[in-house]
């Protein structure tokens, strides 16, 4: 369930596309909720400049070790630097935004 939305229109001080990776373990209600919450948030705060990659660790268990995943679901912001992690089903929007450092940036706009 890889999804990629990319709109290179708006120039931004944060520069370019946000690369987000969501680690899940099978299609559990939690992972589905997390993906939906993430999508909604990105549409709202990063319209057109985000990319979400969903990694299912059941299919790729090796990635869990490589990317040091313990909790599921885990959202990793790979770009922009530095790497940020948010865990949970992202139902707490406030915390997700803080975790992704979208909140201060959003205030700046």
């Amino acid at each position: 369930m890889n999804t990629a939305d990319n709109t290179p229109a708006t120039p931004d001080p944060d520069a370019g596309t946000w690369e987000l990776r969501l680690y899940v373990a099978g299609k559990t209600p939690k992972s589905v909720t997390a993906f939906e919450n993430l999508k909604k948030m990105c549409e709202q705060h990063l319209p057109g400049r985000y990319r979400i990659e969903v990694v299912d660790l059941i299919e790729n268990p090796r990635l869990a070790k490589e990317d040091e995943i313990v909790a599921i679901p885990t959202l990793v912001r790979k770009l922009p630097d530095p790497i940020r992690r948010v865990i949970g089903d992202l139902s707490n929007v406030e915390k997700t935004l803080v975790g992704l450092q979208l909140r201060p940036a959003a205030q700046g706009w």
């Binding site: 939690k30 660790l57 599921i72 885990t74 992690r85 948010v86 915390k95 975790g99 992704l100």
Partner: peptide, 11 residues
């Protein structure tokens, strides 16, 4: 790590 919602340790 920021916790935002329900999670488990499936990883």
């Amino acid at each position: 790590i920021e916790e935002a919602g329900d999670f488990d340790l499936e990883g």
